[in-house]
């Protein structure tokens, strides 16, 4: 096993232990991922029954339930918080310590990220189950939608992580700019389909949302796993788009990382 993989495995194990220690805090963080979609489900379900057709953007109450339950799951798998933390790491100088190690600081972050997702499963899975029992969601995916959906979820997770990290690197130039994390959050909410299916957004926002990568992280896997919304062709194009964005972000990461390091070591060392 090469060095980055070994580092990753070590960080993963270490963070598993830490998170078990702090399970109270971890639980509280993970609840948010359930509450927000649940509240939105209640809202859209009320909106749908209040509309003349009972259906909004092709979703009725039961399919909204499926949509938002899926959003909880996809949201869990795609969680990435470097865009919020990097500013602090740079300001406090903790980044310096990480840069002294023979592997990229990114591997520690990935290790922590994966550990969090594993540990929180024990809290969120029961919550998902309770939610499903209350709202009775309607899923109807074909087998190929499930397969594609799972692949899309993995790709979407990598995409979300990378985008968060790439945006986080603005911290090298502007360590005090915490607003970037908020921007990421807002964009993932609207342009990602977490607030509402993108088709439901006002007409002037839809093209912007479709051009951004966020939809491939959240809405795309969700639609596939809810089922019955995308054609085979759209699915294939979607997966290609995910891979395309992934490629773009990998390049962006390399370029920005080098530039960012130069700037960081020049300014603070």
């Amino acid at each position: 096993m090469n060095l980055p993989m070994r580092a990753l495995a070590a960080h993963f194990r270490a963070h598993l232990a830490v998170m078990m220690q702090y399970r109270g805090e971890v639980l509280l963080w993970s609840v948010w991922g359930v509450i927000s979609p649940a509240v939105l489900y209640a809202m859209w379900s009320a909106a749908a029954s209040g509309s003349s057709s009972g259906v909004i953007a092709g979703y009725d109450q039961a399919s909204f339930a499926a949509y938002f339950l899926m959003m909880m799951i996809v949201g869990h798998v795609t969680a990435a918080w470097d865009v919020y933390e990097m500013g602090y790491l740079v300001r406090s100088g903790s980044m310096s310590a990480q840069l002294l190690k023979p592997v990229l600081p990114m591997w520690q972050s990935i290790g922590a990220n994966m550990a969090y997702k594993v540990v929180t499963l024990m809290f969120v899975v029961p919550m998902w189950a309770i939610f499903a029992w209350i709202v009775k969601p309607k899923f109807q995916p074909e087998w190929w939608e499930v397969a594609a959906g799972l692949a899309a979820m993995v790709l979407g997770s990598a995409l979300a992580y990378l985008l968060s990290y790439v945006m986080a690197m603005a911290a090298f130039w502007a360590p005090k700019l915490d607003a970037l994390g908020e921007a990421f959050f807002a964009l993932s909410m609207f342009a990602g389909g977490r607030f509402a299916p993108i088709e439901a957004l006002p007409w002037y926002v839809v093209p912007v949302a479709k051009a951004l990568p966020f939809r491939w992280m959240y809405e795309f896997p969700t639609e596939l796993l809810v089922g019955g919304r995308l054609s085979g062709a759209e699915t294939v194009w979607g997966l290609i788009a995910q891979l395309g964005w992934l490629g773009v972000l990998v390049v962006a990461f390399r370029v920005l990382w080098r530039a960012g390091l130069k700037r960081y070591t020049a300014v603070s060392g």
Partner: peptide, 23 residues
């Protein structure tokens, strides 16, 4: 202002799809 804008966008989204949200 950004926060407010986001919240207004949310309202605009809801009411471009329906006239009444639980009354």
């Amino acid at each position: 202002l950004g926060h407010l804008f986001g919240e207004l966008l949310a309202v605009a989204t809801v009411f471009s799809n329906t006239e009444s949200l639980a009354g």
